[in-house]
Computed example of a mutant assay.
Amino acid sequence: MNYEIRNRPDGQVELIELRPALVAVFADADIARQVATYLYCQSEEQDSVPTTDAAPEGGAEEPPAATPTPTTLPAVVAQSDLPAAEAPTEPSEADWERAFGLIAAGEKLTDVAKVLRVPWTQLRGKYAAHRQREQKAAAAGGQVDCVVCGRPFTPSLSSPDKCARCARD
């Protein structure tokens, strides 16, 4: 295992542990040598300084081994023949109202969201806001008398004409 010290642009110093990693597999040894030479030259161009200055035990100094370090090669990206995707359009108010009707009729949020081409979480939020507006509109008229017991109560969407006690029965 080797270690390197790198100076960062902000003045700090990085200590990097170099571990052997498989970079590629080649069928031809000549091509493997060419790529290894390229990678080794790339690693020498960096401002890396090895931390080991002492000679190995035994007195004789060995030349550094040409071990290529993993380096990112420039990527080659082919142009796509596929047409550009159209920007998704926001559903109209009529589409939203139709979706709210489907949900109220018992359809699943995910199924309705797929038809509208919106995330189901967005549909859930819009439907909750829609239900809240409906509830406020139902309660805006103030209290009314229950049709069963005659007590005044605030109407709701689930029980517009009966109070909570009478609706429970």
Score class of each variant (00 low, 15 high):
residue 2 N to M: 11
residue 6 R to V: 10
residue 7 N to F: 09
residue 10 D to T: 07
residue 11 G to N: 09
residue 12 Q to G: 11
residue 13 V to D: 05
residue 13 V to M: 12
residue 15 L to G: 05
residue 17 E to P: 02
residue 18 L to Q: 06
residue 19 R to T: 12
residue 20 P to Y: 10
residue 20 P to L: 12
residue 21 A to F: 09
residue 21 A to D: 10
residue 21 A to Q: 13
residue 21 A to G: 08
residue 23 V to M: 14
residue 24 A to I: 01
residue 24 A to H: 12
residue 25 V to Y: 09
residue 26 F to G: 05
residue 29 A to Y: 11
residue 30 D to L: 12
residue 32 A to K: 13
residue 32 A to T: 01
residue 35 V to Q: 10
residue 36 A to Q: 14
residue 36 A to D: 11
residue 37 T to Y: 09
residue 45 E to L: 14
residue 47 D to Y: 07
residue 48 S to E: 03
residue 48 S to G: 07
residue 49 V to D: 06
residue 49 V to C: 05
residue 49 V to W: 11
residue 54 A to V: 11
residue 55 A to M: 07
residue 55 A to F: 08
residue 56 P to N: 08
residue 56 P to E: 14
residue 59 G to P: 04
residue 59 G to H: 05
residue 59 G to L: 13
residue 62 E to C: 03
residue 64 P to W: 04
residue 65 A to G: 04
residue 66 A to R: 15
residue 67 T to P: 02
residue 67 T to V: 15
residue 68 P to L: 03
residue 68 P to I: 00
residue 69 T to E: 04
residue 69 T to Q: 07
residue 70 P to R: 07
residue 70 P to T: 04
residue 73 L to W: 05
residue 74 P to Q: 06
residue 74 P to S: 06
residue 75 A to E: 14
residue 75 A to R: 12
residue 76 V to K: 08
residue 78 A to M: 09
residue 79 Q to H: 10
residue 80 S to Y: 02
residue 80 S to T: 15
residue 81 D to S: 11
residue 81 D to I: 05
residue 83 P to Q: 08
residue 86 E to Q: 12
residue 87 A to K: 13
residue 87 A to D: 10
residue 87 A to R: 12
residue 89 T to C: 06
residue 92 S to F: 04
residue 92 S to G: 13
residue 93 E to P: 03
residue 94 A to F: 07
residue 95 D to W: 04
residue 95 D to A: 14
residue 96 W to D: 03
residue 97 E to C: 06
residue 98 R to D: 14
residue 101 G to Y: 03
residue 104 A to L: 11
residue 104 A to E: 15
residue 105 A to W: 00
residue 105 A to P: 03
residue 106 G to D: 06
residue 107 E to S: 15
residue 107 E to Y: 14
residue 107 E to P: 00
residue 108 K to C: 02
residue 109 L to P: 00
residue 109 L to E: 06
residue 112 V to R: 00
residue 113 A to I: 01
residue 115 V to D: 08
residue 117 R to D: 15
residue 119 P to H: 13
residue 121 T to S: 12
residue 124 R to C: 01
residue 125 G to P: 01
residue 126 K to R: 15
residue 127 Y to I: 01
residue 127 Y to M: 00
residue 127 Y to S: 06
residue 129 A to C: 03
residue 131 R to M: 14
residue 133 R to I: 05
residue 133 R to T: 15
residue 134 E to K: 14
residue 134 E to N: 07
residue 135 Q to N: 07
residue 135 Q to L: 15
residue 136 K to W: 05
residue 136 K to N: 13
residue 137 A to F: 04
residue 138 A to W: 02
residue 140 A to W: 05
residue 140 A to G: 10
residue 140 A to C: 05
residue 142 G to W: 06
residue 144 V to E: 06
residue 146 C to T: 02
residue 148 V to C: 07
residue 148 V to P: 01
residue 149 C to Q: 08
residue 149 C to W: 08
residue 150 G to R: 13
residue 151 R to D: 14
residue 151 R to H: 13
residue 152 P to E: 12
residue 153 F to C: 02
residue 153 F to D: 03
residue 153 F to R: 00
residue 153 F to W: 04
residue 154 T to V: 15
residue 156 S to A: 12
residue 157 L to C: 00
residue 158 S to M: 10
residue 160 P to K: 00
residue 161 D to G: 02
residue 163 C to N: 01
residue 163 C to G: 01
residue 163 C to R: 04
residue 164 A to W: 09
residue 165 R to A: 13
